[in-house]
């Protein structure tokens, strides 16, 4: 894939996306367009396919795209096909996924990991073996970001996610988001496992990093953010321009911030009743998962 460092995408465009895992279709035709500077909330019951969408955008090898497109579209209309890229090429093209369950990498310090990541993402043309970002420059930037996010300075010396509490893992993801400054970020339940204060801090941090919330202090170009969440709190400082509801592998309804508030308050009963086909697909997926588990696969 030829790199196009001067390609400045304005939109992440997903059309008719079907994704299967181990032969089972999870996403059944997803359409979604996220512009720079926009916040989208993606809600839906467990198992509806929200995380699958995140993995598919990032290019996880176990998530097979069977139909549809994911593209980065620039203001001048030029397009880059994300599906033709390896996961690391997608990261270098400006796409970021905050993992719901980040992986531990024992023996690798968070700072070293991030230095590799930042170097590659900022120099998409970098060849392997070429110099990393100068240590001094990297350290001072990291220190500044950590202090902005109220993260302890010894955090960077710890091994990536090893022995981290749930909250620490999520903060490490937010720190990486802050350092990498992607164009589009998918935050997969970055609030799960956090107490109320921690969620508020995460919400503020994301708003600051994304440049779309109350204080765009970072001065960076605003990100397009897809927030996958079950809770309203994370959205407190990140009021969504659009809220989408996923059910049975499809986005069945979209609305504004008020939709997120409604779902948070009332749950998904109205949605299930309004979209019986998607609700049936949800039940079928649950059934299939149960059978697979029962068969010990």
């Amino acid at each position: 894939m030829k790199q196009q460092p001067d390609h400045h995408p304005d939109q992440l465009v997903i059309r008719g996306l079907h994704v299967a895992v181990e032969g089972q279709e999870i996403l059944k035709g997803v359409d979604l367009t996220i512009g720079r500077g926009e916040i989208h909330a993606l809600m839906g019951p467990n198992g509806s396919g929200k995380s699958t969408l995140g993995y598919a955008i990032m290019g996880h090898p176990s998530y097979e795209v069977t139909a549809g497109t994911i593209e980065l579209v620039a203001a001048d209309g030029t397009r880059r096909d994300l599906l033709a890229m390896e996961p690391d090429e997608r990261a270098r093209a400006g796409v970021f996924l905050a993992f719901q369950r980040p992986m531990a990498i024992p023996g690798v310090r968070l700072a070293d990991f991030l230095r590799h990541a930042v170097t590659n993402v900022r120099n998409p043309e970098r060849k392997e073996g070429q110099e990393l970002m100068p240590m001094k420059e990297f350290r001072s930037e990291l220190k500044a970001k950590m202090s902005e996010l109220s993260i302890d300075s010894d955090f960077a010396r710890r091994y990536v996610n090893e022995g981290f509490s749930g909250g620490e893992m999520k903060r490490a993801e937010i720190l990486q988001l802050a350092m990498l400054q992607p164009r589009f970020a998918i935050l997969d339940e970055t609030d799960s496992g956090l107490d109320a204060d921690a969620v508020r801090l995460a919400s503020q941090s994301i708003a600051r990093i994304g440049g779309a919330g109350g204080d765009a202090a970072s001065g960076a170009d605003a990100m397009g953010i897809l927030i996958i969440t079950h809770h309203e709190q994370l959205l407190e400082h990140n009021v969504p321009h659009r809220t989408h509801v996923m059910l049975g592998g499809r986005i069945v309804e979209s609305g504004g911030a008020e939709l997120a508030a409604e779902l948070h308050k009332r749950g998904y009963e109205r949605i299930r009743a309004a979209y019986p086909d998607a609700a049936a697909a949800e039940r079928a997926m649950e059934e299939s998962t149960r059978n697979t588990e029962a068969a010990g696969v």
Binding site: D88, F99, P102, M103, A117, V118, L180
Partner: peptide, 8 residues
């Protein structure tokens, strides 16, 4: 995959 998702 986690590391690749961060650009490595």
């Amino acid at each position: 995959f986690y590391a690749r998702a961060r650009g490595l």
